[in-house]
Write a protein that binds this DNA or RNA. Structure first.
Length: 491
RNA sequence: GGCUCGUUGGUCAAGGGGUCAAGACGCCGCCCUCUCACGGCGGAAACACGGGUUCGAUUCCCGUACGAGCUGCCA
């Protein structure tokens, strides 16, 4: 079998949707698993939806996720250009559309918007679209198919706007094969004469895709499930051209918690949003890989390299997958825990500096927080007490499991205050030794001694790290100040 | 409405005629422990429903229900 060639073909219309990201990932994995070629093609045939900067987002996402393409606009390997608007300018699509017209598989259509509108039939009020409007269905009536050569010439010459439509058969059936969904057959009666070339001269996605996939020798067409129902039309196109169809791999949808297609507002719709929410690119990629696929050996935490090794597109799921933020958070936490200290520190630093302005050992704070967060955004709430002692309730000193209460705590803190005042060495070890010997001397439990101290210096029920770490990071002066405040509160 | 697809615990997800129906997240409990976390151990929790086929269906077939996608000169 020839070398695998897959392509990622995004439209530069905004952010990188996680569904698109997974498609790109799978295309990359399918190719790389067998040493194939992964191609980036830009599908900018919709001038209206084109957004400035969207191209940058695409490149940045690919780079950030490690999905490095072998061919693309910036790496021409002889199949270029890789940008559809440029291909359009070269007349590629119109050339192929005309070939179809010659074969009778396509035709010029001069119908006006008004006439098309009149073709629409209401479908009943049971079908309401997102805008609350009653849906209408249209099937083009092949009106222009019957125009004579002379009529067409005349209209063309007169400059009447036109589109080129596919001439789909009205009888029989069309069958195609999908790796994941198997054989799918539809009645040709269902096939609409879709537009191939728009009146602005640009090809539609439907047409450009088929032409480019063939011209670029794409072997495996990987795309979302939403294209499943239009695939028969592509099959007719391949047939009309006499081209061999690629292997189809339609991916199950990724949905939100309501089992609906991910929308822009759901907060996790794009890769960039996720980064902003404190997630790591590796974790996002890893997580998204597991939406619709699982490794044969049950591994879940996997690098891109490991994914390449074991990924098998024959074992992709059929059913839609819910994008579960909770599990993503867990996975991100796993990556954070595994990360080496230095790297974590560098990534966490900006978030730490958002809360800590005082001259504290940020490195130690970073280490404290490393195993306790799932995303970088969690850092803030965990370390804010280092910056400033919160105004806490003395009820916190009462803890039945620690066998301690406000009175006991006051005793402990009063006993310890002069000891800490006298203590010169505020290292963790030194503080630990000091408190432990007090505890031993008094014959009390660890908790009875440590709970009051930790509470006093942090003002919080729970903290990353314990009393020694906190005091040591805070330093002598601030620790003493907080203990004095505690004594005052408790007295 | 029509067409197409889907349906294993709350979520991801193995399995695919005979299994006590894996594992992970989350949840709960216990252990560790100065708190929180980490780590360790354990627990609750699923084959949508109805008919077939079969000695035997979660697995195959057909219906039903539910869900989703498509039904654009968007991709």
């Amino acid at each position: 079998m020839s070398k695998i060639r897959t392509r990622f073909a995004p439209s530069p219309t905004g952010k990188m949707h996680v569904g698109n990201l997974r498609t790109a990932l799978y295309e990359y994995l399918i190719a790389k698993h067998e040493g194939g070629t992964f191609i980036l093609r830009i599908e900018d045939t919709d001038q209206e939806r084109y957004e400035e900067g969207a191209l940058d987002i695409i490149y940045r996402t690919m780079e950030g996720t490690g999905l490095i393409h072998d061919e693309g606009p910036d790496k021409d390997a002889g199949y270029g250009p890789y940008v559809q608007s440029e291909r359009q300018a070269q007349g590629i699509y119109i050339e192929y559309a005309k070939k179809l017209i010659e074969k009778g598989a396509a035709y010029y259509c001069f119908c006006t918007k008004e006439r098309l509108e009149s073709l629409k039939t209401k479908v009943g009020n049971s079908d309401i679209d997102e805008d609350g409007e009653v849906k209408e269905i249209t099937k083009y009536d092949k009106h222009c198919l019957h125009l004579s050569k002379e009529e067409i010439e005349e209209k063309l010459k007169a400059g009447i706007p036109y589109v080129i439509r596919q001439n789909a058969p009205t009888e029989g059936t069309t069958t195609f094969h999908d790796v994941i969904f198997g054989e799918i057959t539809v009645d040709n009666e269902e096939l609409d004469d879709m537009v191939l070339i728009k009146s602005d001269g640009y090809p539609t996605y439907n047409f450009a895709n088929v032409v480019d996939d063939h011209l670029m020798k794409i072997t495996h067409v990987v795309r979302g499930n939403e294209y499943l129902s239009s695939t028969p039309k592509y099959t007719r196109l391949y047939e009309a051209f006499g081209w061999e169809e690629p292997i189809y791999i339609h991916l199950p949808l990724i949905t939100n918690e309501e089992h609906k297609k991910l929308s822009k507002r759901s907060g996790h719709s794009s890769f960039e949003d996720l980064l902003e929410q404190g997630f790591l690119a590796e974790a996002i990629v890893n997580f998204v890989a597991l939406l619709g696929w699982s490794s044969p050996d049950n591994r879940e935490i996997m690098s891109l390299e490991e994914l390449i090794e074991v990924f098998d597109y024959n074992h992709i799921n059929k059913s839609p997958a819910v994008f579960d933020m909770v599990k993503l958070r867990w996975m991100n936490g796993e990556y954070l825990k595994k990360m080496d200290e230095e790297k974590f520190y560098n990534l966490a630093l900006p978030y730490i500096k958002e809360v800590i302005t005082k001259d504290l050992d940020l490195r130690r704070i970073s280490n404290l927080v490393k195993t306790r967060i799932e995303t970088f955004l969690d850092i803030k709430d965990k370390i804010d007490f280092f910056e400033e002692l919160p105004d806490y309730d003395i009820a916190m000193y009462t803890h039945k499991k620690m066998k301690t209460n406000a009175e006991n705590s006051l005793v402990v803190l009063k006993d310890l205050l002069p000891v800490f005042e006298a203590l010169e060495d505020y290292s963790e070890e030194s503080i630990e030794k000091t408190i432990k010997s007090y505890i031993q001397e008094k014959g009390i439990k660890n908790g009875q001694g440590l709970w009051p101290v930790r509470t006093a210096v942090s003002g919080k029920q729970s903290t990353p790290g314990g009393a020694y770490e906190i005091m040591s990071i805070l330093g002598k002066e601030e620790s003493l100040r907080r203990i004095r405040i505690a004594i005052e509160k408790l007295s």
